[in-house]
Amino acid sequence: MALVRVISSDGAAFLVSQRLAKRSGKLKTEIETFRKSSDNSEAQPEIRIVTIRAEILRLVLQWLQQHQNDPVLPANQNEQDGRGDAEMGQSQWDRDFLAPMDLGIVMELILAANHLEVKGLLDITCKLVESKITGRTVDEIRTAFKLKSDFKGNEEEQTRLENRWCVEN
């Protein structure tokens, strides 16, 4: 089985099958680039991901492993109607996978999924963030994300006026 070494920002190396790695758009491109530039077709590719640390990279690979037989979703979802297709694929396994994570880890995972082009993982992690917004009041959202209003003077009132086009339509 052809393997690839994926190395995290903090130097941890993960040995994974190329078949699995290629389910990430980014790794797929990297492996192919390596192929073209290497004289030895048997050589094992080594890919450094300088923006993702070991803990997060492990989670991504774990997710890929679990979903290795899913159909690969097209990356440029915005071209069609982006919303709605995230509905599919949220399995019990995914829910258990995400459940113990705090928001910080989720954010790192979003970045990693975005960087490595793993659409399915990006979908479920974004969905988790969305669920903290949908149907909540502005105050509830601020609490959920530990944010504070920094509007000054009549800025908030101004925003309200600007939003009228949508609210009243």
Partner: peptide, 15 residues
Amino acid sequence: RLPQNEIIKLRYVCR
């Protein structure tokens, strides 16, 4: 990715 009425709400959260 959110529906429009949810997006518009986010403009009140912070600058």
